[in-house]
Design a protein around this nucleic acid. Structure first.
Lengths: 347, 347
DNA sequence: ACCACGTCTGAAATGCATTTCAAGAAAATG
DNA sequence: CATTTTCTTGAAATGCATTTCAGACGTGGT
């Protein structure tokens, strides 16, 4: 008693158990390897055999057992996408940007016929990711936003775990990151502020996040070049939620001179800033210039429309997947900056 | 030559191949079943054995091969979440609501230690889903939004494929759906319009989508009860994107008397309507009452703030997963309406 | 007519963990 | 002390597809 085909014979038919390749082989009067070859599109079978087997397989609604398949093969053709929902759920703010990014990745994976395993339970321990590789669950990881887990990512890179990151591109980091040119993004915002003649700038964002820090640096660089003609201040909110940002701005303008330019780390944060400023009687663009980040769909339709730095999510997904697969196949992949530009909206 | 442990012996050690359970068993001087029991937390092993094996396993970074595991077991502990990114990408509108729903489902799955396979490549053929079950890829499906695929869902239900749907709850359908009480949602909007003294209502939405049709029906029921005191019209846009809705409303008000109340199928659509109306000189709430749907985070911060029907995404996720697992375990599950209420915002 | 070579197909080995069944050891009972 | 239970543990069978390797069949060459 070896194969389920024989089983079937010995212990009566349709046991409500699924059919196996052996069953199809028997029915088609060929061997398992032949069925396997047909189903995987191998050119080593005659057209006649191929059609015959295919017909039988279809008739019986047979589908290759993916677990047996993956067990035998080395690759899993599955990619884990790690997305920290938690950090977005704070204050019920699901930034649409991340969603678009996810859609971009999903699309790119499906083009290559790879499965997408979505991890929402985010671990800070490199070992957990190593385990998933060892367990042959996935071929690699795509991190959407590196958040504050840089040290872990370095460790993972050292361990040779294939992964790519959407986020800050820092050539000194040992891993492959793809992202917009955050430093340039910051400079674009600063240049825009100068063009609008603004001199009291406020940066909203948390420097613990590498992406955001680089935007901050870009903005600061422009300010510094003005040699004292521009004052720049920073507001770090408790978390990245709408609510925290809203409160943060309220508190800020209660305690300080109001800024005449605000650069927020995201369009969502920009919306929060707009609301808080309006409550205090300041409206953009009359009283202050505003720049957000991401160019999420509502940004253009908000009142006021939000000037913002665009991120190309579709392209991002394609590149992330491409880089990851390079690594999975044993190659190296280097970080990439995506085209980054300012979308000016002056209602 | 049977087990990889023996293999190891015969063809030299660390072949850069992963360690298997047999290896751990050998190292720990126990048998494979014992290791298996330890790793699956079976109570049939002594505490001493457990710790000893665990220690060795950890030392060697061993993780159970999930493919071998799933091959042997019947369950896959994986759920496929089907989400038609495509239909949202039209016009680059990623409705944050779907994202929140996804987050809710992801959270609920992770609580139960189930993996989430995200399918973005949406098939209209029931057989493709049957294949995924036959291939032991997943235990069942969660459809986020039934869109226009009702017939297929019926077929799937008949075939006994375990799945649940977020969307319209229709007791006459043979499958399990979870969703807000769309009819009630429509009635709430109508009642609100009456309270505001509005008499020329416009419904924006496509009746091909069951959810939306039911909202329409709810609204119409209220209008009908007014016996002619209320006029109600419908605007069906080309697709559900922001852009199409915006253009649709523009065209509508160019050709018709402007409505004094608008009920839009989503908050995103509501935003589009607001923009189009404003361009024509009408502002809410002065000139017209507006009700959206979903209560997405920006709705409360938009100008004007959007009155909307709330959907509880977190609860939705939990219920969807619970129902699905009931079905996977062979039980039946019946459709459920979630609490549905109007969030009134009058800026 | 015989050998070489190319094409197609099949038997057996392989990847790895779980489950069943039975046996051995230890503890409880008479 | 003999015997019945109760725990622990292990050997072997099982789930299923892919890959390697060797064999079969047919065709072109001499």
């Amino acid at each position: 008693m070896q194969d389920s085909a024989e089983n079937g014979k010995k212990r009566g038919r349709s046991r409500s158990m699924g059919v196996s390749m052996a069953d199809i082989a028997q029915l088609a009067k060929v061997s398992k390897p032949t069925v396997s070859r047909v189903l995987s599109g191998s050119p080593l079978v005659t057209e006649a055999t191929r059609e015959h087997v295919l017909k039988i397989a279809r008739e019986h609604g047979y589908a290759v057992n993916r677990n047996a398949q993956k067990l035998r093969q080395t690759r899993t053709d599955t990619v884990s996408v790690v997305l920290d929902f938690g950090s977005y759920r704070g204050g019920r703010i699901a930034d649409p940007f991340i969603f678009e990014l996810l859609a971009g990745v999903a699309e790119a994976l499906s083009v290559r016929n790879l499965d997408l395993l979505l991890s929402s339970q985010v671990s800070q321990d490199a070992r957990d990711y190593q385990d998933q590789i060892s367990a042959r669950m996935v071929d690699g990881f795509i991190f959407l936003g590196q958040g504050e887990r840089d040290p872990m990512l370095r460790q993972m890179a050292k361990a040779g775990i294939p992964f790519v990151v959407w986020g800050a591109v820092d050539p000194t980091e040992p891993y492959c990151a793809v992202g917009s040119d955050n430093f340039l993004g910051g400079k674009l915002a600063g240049t825009y502020f100068l063009k609008c003649g603004r001199t009291r700038w406020l940066f909203i964002g948390n420097d613990n996040h590498a992406e955001i820090r680089m935007r901050h640096d870009g903005l600061s660089a422009v300010a510094r070049a003005e040699q004292g003609r521009v004052a720049i201040d920073t507001l770090t909110c408790e978390d990245m939620s709408y609510v925290a940002t809203h409160r943060g701005v309220q508190d800020y303008i209660a305690a300080n001179d109001p800024p005449d330019a605000i650069f927020a780390f995201s369009d969502t944060a920009a919306m929060a800033a707009i609301a808080a400023m309006r409550e205090a009687g300041f409206v953009s663009p009359r009283d202050y210039a505003l720049v957000g980040y991401n160019n999420i769909p509502p940004a253009g339709h908000f009142t006021p429309a939000i000037t913002t730095v665009e991120q190309e999510t579709h392209l991002a997904g394609a590149i992330l997947v491409e880089k990851l697969m390079q690594m999975v196949e044993g190659g190296r992949a280097n970080s990439t900056l995506l085209p980054t530009r300012l979308i000016v909206r002056e209602t």
